[in-house]
């Protein structure tokens, strides 16, 4: 950065505040990691032990082997992965039509899409359960306790459609017109011309969908009643209601569950903040 040097009297308070804020923001993360690598008795010592005498990774192995943890990890990966792929396809298709095609009812339908963003989940959760339960073909409980049932309500999102539309608006229409003259159909134009140009929008939608789905709690809690169909978040939530909590074990599990999101963030940080700002800039 080539910003001009500022006097210390000006930068020092900024660093002090930011340093303090960073500590407050990171203490829960730090304590989670530190507890995870302690041995059992060490967490019940006063004053608290910060860095363990003998850091251990055995809690991670133990957490992985508790209950059906690997199965829940797989469930979460399948659910978040499938929701991400479906959103990438469905949201971009809808946005392509909204941004680049003219058809009757276009603006009205787009308004309906945006309106779904305003409806709080609290109103829809009970009927959603009833609807998913009555969907045919996957068993007596409808789509309850199925991957399809967990994923379907989140398979498209107003946020994703909106974000793709914003991005598609920046791509010149001449591309479509040239392709049309060359005899390309709409699907060709969408899939082979526009989508490759929209890679940044794809990354933003993908990571947002993945993180939201990976972290989601209420819907999987409602739709999955069979322990083999729990996601990680649902499975973990039952841990804490037990009477004696094994904190190193629980914090190890928490680290394992948080790690995929942290890794995504480490590599794709700029897309997170870009996507977040999109919401506000539509005002």
């Amino acid at each position: 950065m080539s910003a001009p040097r500022k006097p210390l009297a000006e930068t020092l308070p900024v660093y002090l505040f930011l340093g303090l804020a960073t500590i407050v923001a990171l203490v829960p993360f730090g304590w989670m990691f530190l507890t995870a690598i302690k041995s059992g008795p060490e967490v019940y010592r006063l004053p608290p032990v910060f860095w363990p005498a003998e850091p251990t990774l055995k809690n991670f192995a133990a957490a992985w082997g508790t209950g059906n943890f690997p199965r829940l990890f797989l469930n979460s990966a399948i659910v978040a992965g499938a929701a991400t792929l479906l959103n990438l396809l469905f949201d971009s298709m809808a946005a392509f039509a909204f941004a680049r095609l003219r058809f009757p009812g276009r603006e009205a339908l787009f308004a309906v899409v945006l309106a779904t963003m305003m409806l709080p989940a609290v109103v829809t959760i009970i009927p959603l359960f009833l609807i998913v339960k009555s969907l045919p073909a996957l068993g007596p409980g409808g789509w309850l306790n199925t991957y399809a049932g967990i994923v379907a309500p989140g398979a498209a999102s107003a946020f994703g459609i909106f974000l793709f539309r914003q991005y598609f608006d920046t791509i010149p229409l001449e591309i479509d017109e040239a392709a049309k003259i060359d005899g390309a159909g709409l699907w060709r134009i969408y899939w082979s011309m526009i989508m490759p140009l929209a890679a940044p929008a794809c990354v933003t939608v993908a990571i947002f969908t993945f993180v939201v789905q990976w972290n989601d709690f209420l819907w999987p809690l409602v739709v999955a009643t069979d322990a083999d169909m729990y996601t990680l978040q649902v499975g973990l939530s039952y841990f804490t209601t037990e009477h004696s909590i094994d904190w190193p074990l629980l914090m190890s599990a928490a680290v394992i569950v948080t790690l995929p999101v942290l890794l995504l963030y480490a590599f794709l940080q700029k897309y997170f903040v870009g996507g977040l700002a999109m919401g506000a800039s539509k005002e």
């Binding site: 809808a94 039509a97 095609l101 058809f103 899409v113 779904t116 109103v123 009927p127 959603l128 309500p153």
Partner: peptide
């Protein structure tokens, strides 16, 4: 305009069936 409607259909089906319909069902129930 069929193709245009086909492009918006999957997303609208998901949002309609799992967000708008539940809203109306909640009101009815």
């Amino acid at each position: 305009h069929g193709p245009a409607y086909l492009f918006v259909a999957p997303a609208l089906l998901v949002l309609g069936l799992f967000t708008l319909a539940p809203m109306l069902v909640a009101l009815a129930l």
